[in-house]
Amino acid sequence: MGRERVKTLQEATYDAEVIIDGCPPAELSHDFTAIISRWAARGAYRFLVTLRGAKFTECQDFLREALQSFLFASFTVREGTSPARSELRLTLRANGDKLEVIE
């Protein structure tokens, strides 16, 4: 950790990227925070969150719950497809009562 793993948006650097496929319900935010916590424990704190197939305003309940649990982290949330290629990247999608890693 500490190397530049993802480069996007105006030379901003990120430690890891999470792609969220669709818009999970707010109740699944704890699955998201569990993943972020594992990365945070390894020193990551700058996260790129890409919303795929959903608008930011549609996902605000989920994002609010997910992001505000990490007051020590930087989050950049964007809509669309990921322009980055990163070693630390996961794609998540809601499946029933779980947030599953699909890529």
């Binding site: 948006l9 105006q10 930011f56 020590f72 949330v77």
Partner: peptide, 23 residues
């Protein structure tokens, strides 16, 4: 300043940006 550069360059803007205390 990063956002201003994106605006001038016509790049995509993030919808939400939180700045960690260490940044």
């Amino acid at each position: 300043v990063q956002l201003a550069k994106a605006v001038v360059d016509g790049s995509e803007l993030p919808r939400y940006l939180s700045v960690a205390p260490r940044d």
